[in-house]
Amino acid sequence: MPPLDLHPVAEVMPSPCSVSVLKGNTAIEHLDRTLTVKTSEIKIGDRVDGLLCNANGRILDRLMICNLGEDMLLIGNHGVGDDTRENLIRGIPWNEEIIVMNGDAAITHLRLVGGAVNRCLAGLGIDTLEISEERWIEYGSALISHTDYSELSVVEILVPTAELVEFTALLHENGAISPDRNRCESLRIELGILDYRELNSAFLPFELGLGHMVSLNKGCYPGQEIHARMDSRGKASRGIVRLRMHSDVAVGKHKVPGIGSITVTASAKAFEGSVALAVVPLPAISLEELKFEGGLIAAMQSL
């Protein structure tokens, strides 16, 4: 596989998202009852990533949570914020006062990726050693954290939308660039960053390698029975991989002779062809390449 083609400093990628705020003394407990991860011990400034699943164990939303003290900030998938908020509201017990607010227009999620992200952030006066995966640090009104992927660490930035232009200009002044839409998508695929194209009800957490976002010992939550059964009976029947091809592949279901049906969730042009994310039957995961009906050959790489 070719080495990751990174900008020498940094690229700022907007990440479409939904934003919800929970207010109330029992907001943490409410999330704990609802999500796949334990939130009951989340402290102020902590970051916890979890999934909202349906009773069939399928993913409804992925939430990046920040405990802001009196409020819980939830960054979810693009396009499903209303459903997630309704889901959260419907389950509020009669004796708990929890308010749910829509902040989709208020906060923007950016990702910073590159060969010298530290230098870019240092120019803003941010000590990158303070940035962790478990905590959010404040920079003015913005919040910063990072996520480790197999290839690279990606900086996550939440910034008030009203300050987005100013904040992005600061990053540009310190060497970052804003890539075009295709580049954002190809970087996302190269890094294995999952978004609403993958994190939806077509898939189960284990199929997307998200076992770390499923707590099997926290007690019941919607989907828990299915997740526990999958864990005890031998995991998922499908898995997610990255494909690399010399030409484009359409998003959707494809037949691969000898393998069966695979689902391409995302595709983008990349250096010398295209890259894609696909969910394939488990027996195929160890293969080095796939041959689509029609002859297209794709090199396969696990995330």
């Binding site: 607010m101 829509n102 989709d104």
Partner: peptide, 12 residues
Amino acid sequence: MGILGGEGFSLP
């Protein structure tokens, strides 16, 4: 934390 201090949030 000031991230909620801006505009754009809905009523409950």
